[in-house]
Simulated assay, not measured.
Amino acid sequence: MNYLLTLVFLFGICYVRAEDDFLPDYIQPCNLKEDDFAKCVKQQIEESLPNFSKGIPELGVPSVDPVNLDDILIDGNGLKLKFEKAQMHGLSHTKLTKLKVDIGREEETINLGIIANLSLTAKYNADGKILILPIKGDGDAVITCKNIEVEINSKFSHIKSNKGMHFKLVTPNYKYDIQSTTFEFENLFNGNKQLADATLQFANENWRQLMDDLAPPVVKQIVKTIVKAINKFFSKVTIDRIVNGYKQKS
């Protein structure tokens, strides 16, 4: 019995130490004092994005591909459209488009730009009109967004733990643009192919008007999920583990 308790105790110690010291091998610290600090951070983010988006179980960082979304409701302008059990897929293939990091100054900030092809899957229920055409049905839906660009601006704050000081992204704001979108709705008009094809063609030709209502809540949830995952990582890894030569502001 004593032997078993000892093993449990040692396992607990090893687990805590592993978490304290753990840093994925695809993430290397950058030296703040070096001239190529910005280049190093950019390289680290570019190399980390595909792996980071899959999650880091050792640090409790969840996967962000797919992203589970809250129910989405469009109700206005003659259209009632609801999406349930929605998921966004594709963030593991995100690419970095821009990066500016200010660390070690009075105000520490990050400006991050990413681009990806994303698809939303959900159960939909629609009744009303898309602009001038009627739409009615319920079933599976797939919405595919090509080259959706999101730019996130955020400040860094500092959180103290018994391990040391940690970064945290606060007051993030963002903007986005979408190159194109296509819609697929199964079981429109109870399977009437002629009506369904005409409505889908019209929707896909006028996708931007639909996305004016649909995109904001979706992008908001995506950004919230990304920031939450990053902050989870920061909460487990102290600043001095990822930034060499960082001096805490007094």
Score class of each variant (00 low, 15 high):
72 I>V: 15
120 L>M: 15
74 I>R: 13
95 K>W: 01
77 N>Y: 13
125 N>V: 04
77 N>L: 15
68 N>K: 13
115 I>K: 10
129 K>D: 08
72 I>L: 15
99 L>C: 09
124 Y>V: 02
71 D>E: 14
98 K>F: 08
97 T>S: 04
83 F>W: 05
126 A>D: 03
90 G>Y: 09
92 S>F: 05
91 L>M: 15
73 L>F: 06
76 G>T: 10
108 E>R: 11
130 I>Q: 05
87 Q>D: 07
80 K>E: 09
116 A>T: 15
73 L>R: 13
110 I>K: 05
120 L>W: 01
74 I>D: 08
112 L>M: 13
74 I>A: 04
87 Q>R: 08
119 S>H: 12
93 H>N: 15
103 I>E: 01
131 L>V: 14
113 G>F: 09
115 I>V: 15
131 L>C: 11
125 N>M: 08
82 K>S: 12
89 H>K: 11
116 A>F: 01
67 V>Y: 02
108 E>V: 05
103 I>Q: 02
108 E>S: 12
76 G>C: 06
84 E>F: 00
101 V>Y: 03
72 I>C: 06
107 E>M: 10
84 E>H: 02
95 K>L: 00
118 L>I: 13
124 Y>Q: 04
85 K>R: 12
116 A>V: 09
130 I>W: 02
117 N>S: 14
103 I>D: 02
125 N>H: 12
84 E>G: 07
116 A>P: 04
73 L>D: 11
121 T>P: 06
89 H>T: 04
121 T>R: 03
125 N>P: 03
75 D>P: 12
129 K>C: 10
114 I>G: 03
131 L>R: 10
91 L>A: 07
91 L>F: 11
80 K>W: 04
118 L>A: 06
104 G>Y: 00
93 H>G: 13
95 K>E: 14
114 I>P: 00
71 D>C: 06
117 N>D: 15
106 E>G: 04
67 V>M: 05
96 L>W: 05
107 E>P: 00
109 T>C: 08
